[in-house]
Design a protein around this nucleic acid. Structure first.
Length: 262
DNA sequence: AAGCCTGCCAACCGCGGAGCG
DNA sequence: ACGCTCCGCGGTTGGCAGGCT
């Protein structure tokens, strides 16, 4: 899991840290502090560059550094803060005692970001189902409902999507929601398609309303058009694929315990 | 059983900003 | 104002471990 030790052109060791090196660095910093990272390794008796020492200390040796899986609360905080701050890992880490920016960044890239990529898809066909909601001011009631299932060639989330995957996918929607900085937010599926099928969680419960739909064949100008009647292509070619959905801010109130919104 | 693939995470690298002379 | 040094941040890489075929 770690890089094998090696020596660079300056005679500095690189790669995985040994227990002996850890102990030298730990005991030196506990005794003298880190007054100058560049000079520290020399005084601590380490053949490492200052940068490497700093990284090892901050991410691994520093007292209080937490290891292991992120708790549900921590995941929620990361997701929420990322929606607000973007890739400001150090700023996010400040709000999560014991977690380092590196760890949060790894968490994001491996558990969240990855899942948005079409190549991550495992099943050939999936559906995205939602129910039209005409009055966005009444978040909890639906005046009309229309169940639409849109098949896609790619599917980010299989029907066996885990609770965690679902949470993460929804959190991504929330990020877009926040990013729009409007009462109602938009999430464009055009470039990064997020699809899922999760029977327990229909869009009716998200109080989501669809907005518009790309359909090149029906729009010569290739422009986005609001569709009061949903233009539905049962099997759209990839270049025509794309769905613009608007979400109610209610999306923020997703209950991670029940998988439902309230 | 063996080879391949994917997930995960420690560590590296490059860049930009702050501080200082 | 400028150049240099140092530090911290964010992006990326390398490779082990475990699952899959």
């Amino acid at each position: 899991m770690v890089r094998p030790p090696s020596i660079d052109s300056n005679g500095m060791k690189k790669g995985a840290w040994s227990e002996d090196e850890d102990e030298k660095l730990r005991s030196y910093i506990q005794r003298y502090g880190h007054w100058n990272w560049r000079l520290l390794p020399k005084y601590a008796g380490l053949k490492r560059c200052g940068k490497s020492c700093r990284l090892r200390w901050v991410n691994y040796l520093k007292p209080g550094v937490k290891r292991g899986n992120f708790s549900k609360e921590e995941r929620q905080i990361v997701i929420k803060l990322h929606a607000e701050l973007g890739n400001k890992w150090s700023a996010i880490a400040e709000k999560l005692p014991g977690r380092t920016d590196n760890e949060i960044k790894n968490f994001w890239h491996t558990r969240v970001e990855r899942r948005r990529k079409p190549n991550h898809l495992t099943k050939p066909i999936n559906t995205i189902s939602f129910i039209e909601k005409t009055d966005s001011s009444e978040a909890t009631s639906l005046s009309t409902s229309q169940d639409l299932s849109v098949p896609f060639d790619d599917a980010s989330f299989s029907t066996n999507s885990s609770q965690e995957e679902l949470e993460l996918m929804l959190s991504e929607m929330l990020k877009e929601d926040v990013a729009q900085n409007e009462g109602l937010a938009a999430h464009v599926f055009n470039e990064e398609v997020l699809e899922f099928d999760y029977p327990e969680l229909r869009y009716s419960e998200l109080s989501c309303s669809y907005g518009s739909f790309w359909n090149e064949s029906s729009n010569a100008s290739n422009s986005e058009s609001e569709t009061s009647s949903y233009s539905y292509n049962a099997n759209p070619p990839v270049e025509e694929e794309g769905l613009l959905l608007t979400y109610d801010p209610l999306l923020q109130y997703f209950d991670y315990e029940t998988s439902l919104f309230w």
